[in-house]
């Protein structure tokens, strides 16, 4: 059956701030199968990017394990990590900020290959870079252009080409299409899907846009304030969400259709600060089903049906009553 490519156990990432400890990612566990796309959604500040970075050790986790091919990479030295990095790459959100303005397109794509000393002669390097440009749909004549001469869609293709250069198995895609116009967004999403089919890539797709995540993912994880609150396959999360936050998030998306009438759940207030979070459920302050227990005891991520995890004390009760419980 499916084979786990990456397994994350009790991962924590805290930042010290002058007001206390910021719990950016707090005790998160999940795995990603080989060839799978796991979508990670949540609003600003929920810790989704921090999680994506901690998994490939762009920042070192505070605690927890990241097991890649059976090896806990959080314990590896910088030298050992450099080898593993060939296998795990990241594409960043902002194609305007993630490229070096003084390197032309060819140099940008060649950089990871040079760093890892993959080729000993320039002819091979050149061949590989041009192949990569073909793969991501960049015309070869653009090799000498600089980032400022390119539009956002093309820059993001450069970002994808750089990430692909070392033939990774696993890619973290951190909001790769959020900065792009819809017509270009669709081009890049299709490109990512084609590459996955062709090269058997495994993706962690981070986004705040649920429609895009649903489109590309096999399973979807929802985060709120450093915690994973729900995890299941892409169909179940839309048809049968268990966590009240997931329900509110889904109902808040404006849908470009006139034939869909939905009941909207408007959440009160804003996301609270992740610095020194209060005990209990992180969502308690905004949840309409909150009880005393929710303010005292932190809910665990529990499996309610095969493969469907949620962290809510009242998940079962709310499901049975159709979300009408008082």
């Amino acid at each position: 059956m499916s084979e786990k490519l990456i397994e994350v156990n009790n991962l924590k990432k805290y930042f010290k701030t002058k007001n206390g400890l910021l719990h950016a990612v707090d005790d998160v566990s999940f795995h990603i199968d080989k060839g799978e796309t796991l979508g990670l959604v949540g609003e600003s500040g929920c810790g989704k990017s921090t999680l994506g970075r901690a998994i490939i050790r762009l920042s070192d986790p505070t605690a927890g394990e990241v097991i890649f091919h059976g090896q806990d990479i959080t314990k590896l030295s910088a030298r050992e990590m450099m080898k593993i990095r060939q296998n795990m790459q990241i594409v960043f959100q902002d194609p305007y900020a993630s490229l070096d303005g003084r390197k032309n397109l060819f140099e940008s794509i060649a950089e990871p290959l040079k760093v890892q000393k993959v080729f000993s002669n320039n002819a091979d390097l050149e061949k590989k870079v041009f192949e990569l440009m073909d793969t991501v749909g960049l015309a070869r004549r653009l090799a000498n252009t600089y980032p400022h001469e390119l539009d956002g869609g093309r820059r993001q293709r450069v970002g994808v080409a750089r990430a692909l250069a070392l033939n990774p198995e696993f890619m973290v895609l951190d909001e790769p299409v959020s900065a792009l116009d819809v017509s270009i967004q669709a081009q890049i999403i299709n490109l990512l899907e084609e590459l996955q089919d062709k090269l058997g890539l495994t993706y962690l797709f981070i986004s705040h846009d649920l429609s895009v995540v649903k489109h590309i993912s096999d399973r979807i994880a929802v985060m709120y304030l450093g915690k994973m609150v729900e995890l299941t396959d892409y169909k179940t999360i839309f048809n049968d969400p268990l966590h009240p936050y997931t329900q509110a998030l889904l109902s808040a998306i404006p849908v470009p259709r006139l034939d869909v009438k939905r009941e909207r759940i408007i959440l009160q207030g804003d996301v609270p600060s992740p610095v020194n979070p209060k005990p209990g459920c992180r969502f308690a302050g905004r949840c309409m089903f909150c009880q005393d227990r929710c303010r005292e005891e932190e809910p665990e991520l529990k499996e309610y049906s095969p493969g469907h995890f949620a962290a809510c004390h009242r998940a079962m009760e709310l499901k049975e009553s159709g979300g009408k419980a008082e």
Binding site: V182, S183, A186, L210, S211, V212, F238
Partner: peptide, 9 residues
């Protein structure tokens, strides 16, 4: 434009 947006439903 409509063809470019993923349909949630």
């Amino acid at each position: 434009l409509f063809g470019c947006i993923p349909d949630l439903y």
